Amino acid sequence: MSVQAATYSTLINGEPASTSDLVPLAFSGFAHFTAMQVRDRKVKGLDLHLTRLREASITLFGMALPDEKVLRSIRLAIAEGSADKSLTVTIYSQEGEFTAKSMGVEPSILVRADLPYDGPSGPVRLSVVEHERHLAEIKHVGEGAKTYYLHRAVEQGFNDAAFVDRRGRLSEATIWNLVFWDGHSVVWPRAEILTGTMMGIVQRQLRRLGVPQRHEEIKFRDVAGFSGAAIMNSWTPGVMITAIGSNIVPEANQFMDVLHEAYQAEPAMIV
Score class of each variant (00 low, 15 high):
Gly225Asp: 11
Glu217Gln: 13
Arg221Cys: 03
Ile201Phe: 06
Glu192Cys: 01
Val187Arg: 01
Met198Ala: 04
Gln203Asn: 08
Leu209Glu: 13
Met198Asp: 04
Ala191Ser: 14
Arg221Tyr: 01
Thr195Arg: 13
Gly225Tyr: 04
Met198Gln: 14
Gly196Val: 12
Val211Thr: 14
Glu216Asn: 03
Ile218Ala: 08
Gly210Glu: 10
Val187Cys: 10
Thr197Arg: 06
Pro189Trp: 05
Phe220Asn: 05
Ser227Trp: 00
Arg208Tyr: 05
Leu206Thr: 11
Leu194Ala: 05
Ser227Leu: 03
Gly196Tyr: 10
Gln205Lys: 13
Ala229Trp: 03
Ile193Tyr: 02
Val223Pro: 01
Arg190Met: 08
Leu206Glu: 09
Gly210Cys: 10
His215Cys: 04
Arg190Ile: 01
Ile201Cys: 13
Val202Lys: 00
Ala224Gln: 11
Gly200Tyr: 08
Leu209Ile: 11
Gly225Ala: 12
Ser185Glu: 14
Arg190Tyr: 06
Asp222Ala: 07
Arg221Thr: 13
Arg214Tyr: 07
Ile193Ser: 01
Met198Asn: 10
Pro212Lys: 11
Val186Asn: 01
Ala230Glu: 05
Val186Phe: 04
Leu209Cys: 05
His215Gln: 13
Ile193Met: 13
Thr195Gly: 10
Pro212Glu: 09
Phe220Trp: 05
Ala224Asp: 06
Ala230Thr: 06
Ser227Ile: 00
Gly196Thr: 11
Gln205Leu: 06
Lys219Leu: 15
Lys219Cys: 05
Val187Tyr: 02
Ile218Val: 15
Gly228Gln: 02
